[in-house]
Nucleic acid binder design. Structure first.
Length: 586
RNA sequence: GCCACCGUAGCUCAGUGGCAGAGCAGCUGUUUCGUAAACAGCAGGUCCUCGGUUCAAAUCCGAGCGGUGGCUCCA
């Protein structure tokens, strides 16, 4: 264990720094709890751990904290830091711990949860004592720069049936400079927020008339459709067939699929001609009907139905978020109907496609989670054994690092989820592959085996990008709005220097358009500098300046959004340059 | 759904009970310009909605709608 006992020696390595921050933040949480108890003597303490970027502490109080409370707490915390109060660790018996925290119901619960024989430790600083494993810094003076950030409600033990506690979030760093840098990074991340960029780049908008339902403006629709076009290209290679299915179905279908029973709260319903209909939240039942519409031979499998159909899910208010959690969206969704012996190959093929796509978008490695059999569940243990093994074998064959999550699978089958973080580090599930033993039963799906007997196929639900809305949201933040050329809604802006160059600029634009490039002419009565600035702010990949010199020579002066100036180039060369980038999906 | 905060011009925001403001964007005019913001003028408001308190409400109170940060949820 590295000692920071003097508190002054700067950490000499990254891991030491991480360790120091961890202890400092943990200690800051204790200091905060101490102050809260002084200001709110009736407050009950829950837990107060350090986190990735800071710390929090949960309290049960008679009224929520106000911003003024938080300011007062922070001010008094600084005083304790200035006083340099020592932290002291002490091991106590279970009985002593129970007695010491007799007035703390949450601490009692925690003590009861500590396995017999395990040491119970407490940490003191001044008059404050907390049940805590540690470690901590040796003195409150080692908490160099701290700031309280947010107050939020949080359920005890993360269960919404438990009382809601008041959580105060804060962060602490080894120096004011490091804290300021951290806050600056947060500000930088906010500049990449897709909701902000969506407005600034005219990609999409939201209107209270349709909460959590994006309106894609022309530029956003271009990117959206290009994503679909890209996926269609993959489908050609990977053997998928695209289908188009209804938007609303009689409730009978949802009763049969089980959605009416299990997912009803999240669905939209309507009644027409005295018959109740449900708007589809998923495509699977529709695809099951298509599969069942004719007799299938084992030779026909796998059948892979892809569907970009629009889905509607009622999401509880408070959970929606920009494009990443919406109430209407479409997925690059597909259902594979296959024989049990084909699961492995199908999952492998899909994982390869995901890998290919994520690499194209230059995403970092996704976090991968393998969710295993829950209770209760459908299907035999033998089927689960086989399905889980198939998923795990594929993950290992592809050398993906993944986390096993026992009990986290859906009742109908195990699944693998792929997660990517947004600008603020919040993770979103994009790709998913889920095996389903339930749907084939419910829809009595069959194929005729090689022995002439009817067999039950397996259904694989899979989406690569997942919700296209969510994917686009994450993608916008990933690129900071600067889409690669092939995805940019406007690939080039023609910038005539003066009015007399307008006609030439139009000619150049037409030449580019004729080759399928997306071009605009900025013929506003503005100076060239202003047009360049606006094109830069729109993150346009190519700015093509047209003045006297260019018009005379049949050139365009090429400026890239990086600021690089390629100088005058023949228009044909500019077109080649751009087409090359598009073809390579750069 | 739960906790907190927020809602003023297209956008970003100022305005703590007494005539609704600024910058940018927009429009009009002048300017015709060489790689990140020309100049001038004009126009733009249900201060989210409804109700209440008050001589008087953007401002105080209540409810609703919407959003933001968390929590829970995401068959």
């Amino acid at each position: 264990m590295i000692s920071m006992s003097d508190g002054a020696a700067p950490p000499s390595s990254m891991s030491e720094l991480a360790d120091y921050r961890h202890r400092m933040r943990h200690s800051a949480a204790h200091i905060m709890a101490d102050i809260v108890r002084r200001l709110f003597p009736e407050a009950k303490l829950a837990i107060g751990p350090p986190t990735e970027d800071g710390f929090y502490y949960d309290f049960l109080v008679s009224r929520p904290f106000t911003p003024e409370d938080v300011a007062a707490i922070e001010a008094q915390m600084r005083e304790v830091v200035a006083q340099g109060v020592a932290f002291q660790r002490q091991e106590v018996s279970r009985g002593e711990a129970k007695a010491l925290f007799a007035q703390e119901p949450f601490k009692q619960e925690i003590i009861d949860g500590i396995p017999p024989g395990e040491a119970i430790s407490i940490y003191r600083h001044g008059a404050f004592v907390d049940l805590c494993e540690g470690p901590h810094v040796t003195s409150t003076s080692e908490v160099k720069a701290l700031k309280l950030l947010e107050v939020a409600g949080a359920y005890w033990r993360g269960d919404e049936h438990n009382p809601m506690l008041q959580r105060i979030y804060g962060t602490a760093f080894e120096s004011q400079e490091a804290l300021d840098e951290h806050l600056e990074r947060l500000e930088e991340a906010r500049r990449r927020d897709h909701r902000r960029l969506g407005r600034e780049l005219d990609l999409f908008l939201f209107d209270p008339i349709a909460p959590a339902s994006p309106f894609f403006l022309p530029k956003g629709a271009i990117v959206y459709n290009l994503l679909i076009q890209y996926v269609r290209g993959l489908y050609d290679r990977y053997g998928y067939q695209e289908v188009i299915t209804p938007q609303i179905f009689s409730t009978e279908l949802w009763k049969r699929s089980g959605h009416y029973e299990a997912y009803r709260e999240n669905m939209y319903f309507t009644t027409v001609d005295d018959r109740e209909y449900g708007v589809k939240p998923m495509n699977c039942p529709g695809h099951a009907l298509m599969y069942a519409s004719r007799l299938r031979s084992y030779r026909d499998l796998p059948v892979r139905y892809a569907d970009f159909g629009r889905l509607h899910r009622y999401e509880r208010s408070g959970v929606t978020h920009g494009l990443t959690r919406v109430r209407t969206f479409s997925q690059d969704d597909a259902h594979i109907f296959c024989r049990p012996d084909q699961i492995h190959q199908e999952v492998k093929s899909f994982a390869g496609m995901v890998e290919e796509a994520y690499r194209l978008f230059q995403f970092p490695k996704p976090r991968v989670a393998l969710s295993l059999r829950p209770d209760p569940r459908v299907g035999t243990d033998a089927m689960w054994d086989r399905a889980e093994a198939a998923l795990e074998e594929v993950l290992q064959a592809l050398e993906l690092t993944y986390e096993r999550k026992p009990g986290e699978g859906a009742f109908y089958g195990p699944k693998v989820d792929f997660f990517i973080a947004d600008a603020l580090g919040r993770e979103w599930q994009l790709g998913t592959v889920q095996l389903d033993f339930s749907l084939p039963e419910r829809f009595d799906l069959e194929y005729i085996g090689d022995d002439g007997s009817p067999q039950r196929p397996v259904v694989i639900h899979r989406a690569m990008l997942g919700s296209l809305e969510r994917f686009l949201g994450v993608l916008i933040e990933h690129y900071g709005g600067a889409f690669p050329v092939w995805l940019a809604p406007v690939q080039a802006v023609l910038i005539p220097i003066a009015d007399r160059h307008g006609e030439y600029a139009q000619q150049v634009a037409q030449a580019l358009k004729a080759r399928g490039l997306r071009v605009q002419v900025d013929d506003r009565n503005e100076r060239m500098n202003a047009k360049i600035r606006d094109a830069q702010l729109q993150k346009t990949p190519y700015m093509l300046v047209a003045g006297d010199r260019e018009a005379a020579e049949g050139n365009a002066a090429v400026r890239l959004r990086s600021g690089e100036n390629l100088g005058p180039r023949p228009v044909a060369e500019v077109i080649d340059l751009m087409l090359e980038a598009v073809a390579a999906r750069r």
